[in-house]
Design a protein around this nucleic acid. Structure first.
Lengths: 205, 205
DNA sequence: TGGTGTGAATGCCTTCACAGCG
DNA sequence: CGCTGTGAAGGCATTCACACCA
């Protein structure tokens, strides 16, 4: 059992997603080739990835969907839960709040914050919107473990500072401005125009 | 001048973004070390990447911000423009329509589509919302070159089929359901929960 | 035969070390 | 010196080839 790379982990998440669908369609078994067809990853890669989590496949048979999903899920979440603190309840923030379930019982937005007075106090989905000032307190109370920046550019650094102050160690940043944080905090930037352009380059030959 | 990898391209986009900010702040010059500090990429990597686009740096001086930005931009877009066809004008779709500018004059949403009658005919930002049926015609007329799926899960495959029919060769899929398309079409899946979880795993040690 | 699991080979990307230049 | 540019070395991830199992 060697070290598991970040790349393997993110593929594992895609396998989980695919397995959820297969289970919903009442498939009890799946081969690496079938999984390859729905995920776009090669079958060899899939076997290699899965084998790094343990021997869970049955030669000649394939993998039991439910069992495999559990193995992957346990590794990814190891008896913890993903609790999200969301900053910015605009269009993007609302989209995230309503994002359809995947691992429904183990991922939840537990706190939402905004500056606009008319939004504060309202319920969006299951959570109430609070002002930024209350973030450190509420983040601690809800034991949020990652934060999402979905505010207009200009606020992003302030929000990041608040997150760090509140003790969050992982930040997903949707704002196009990059933020600076202490070294122990991981930031994942998702810049939509960069995603679009990189696809454009791939097809533009 | 060797082949330029997809990874280099996507880093180049981050450099462009950073250069835009530097130019806005009236910096005329930048060294690979400074660029490293704001992008998170190592300085050696940056020099290597940039050198694959040509010799544009001045030893002892650094890179001229405006010049470097042009070189990178020309490579990425090579005298073309990114014209986006957006499917689904819900929260996420609206967020994309209003996404703040990056390469403002060379990226634009040129067409938007939705099924809900009350949205059709309305203007969101600069574009009018049309029904799905008119997509092939309008996509051809506007010469859109990539499509975005921002519809609720369940519609995503239909939308993908429409896009392929209309001749789009690149698709960004924000819906959690993966879509199947002919081999010549490139699909980029962006599954928000997967992004969140992969960050969670990184910090969860 | 039809599937998984895995050491070995390959290939790609990053890092190192240093040449070149003002 | 200080900074870019680049061949060479190194490391990591994917692919190949095949052992093994029922």
């Amino acid at each position: 059992m060697t070290k598991i790379s970040q790349k393997t982990v993110s593929r594992a998440l895609r396998y989980i997603r695919a397995l959820e669908n297969l289970i919903k369609q009442k498939h009890r078994l799946v081969s690496s080739k079938e999984l390859a067809a729905v995920t776009g990853v090669t079958d060899v890669q899939i076997r290699k990835d899965i084998s790094s989590f343990g021997k869970v496949g049955r030669p000649r048979i394939g993998y039991r969907t439910a069992e495999l999903k559990n193995v992957l899920e346990d590794f990814v979440l190891q008896d913890d839960m993903l609790r999200i603190a969301l900053f910015g309840v605009g269009n993007l923030g609302t989209a995230i709040l309503k994002y359809p379930g995947f691992l429904k019982d183990r991922i939840r937005v537990v706190a939402a914050f905004d500056v606009e007075p008319q939004k504060i106090g309202k319920k969006v989905g299951l959570v109430t919107v609070y002002p930024f000032e209350r973030a450190p307190q509420i983040i601690r109370k809800t034991r949020a473990n990652i934060g999402i920046i979905a505010v207009p550019q200009g606020f992003s650094q302030d929000v990041a500072d608040l997150m760090v102050l509140a003790g969050l160690r992982g930040i997903v940043n949707f704002s196009p401005a990059s933020v600076s944080v202490p070294a122990e905090v991981r930031v994942k930037d998702i810049d939509l125009t960069i995603e679009f352009l990189s696809l454009f380059c791939e097809i533009h030959k």
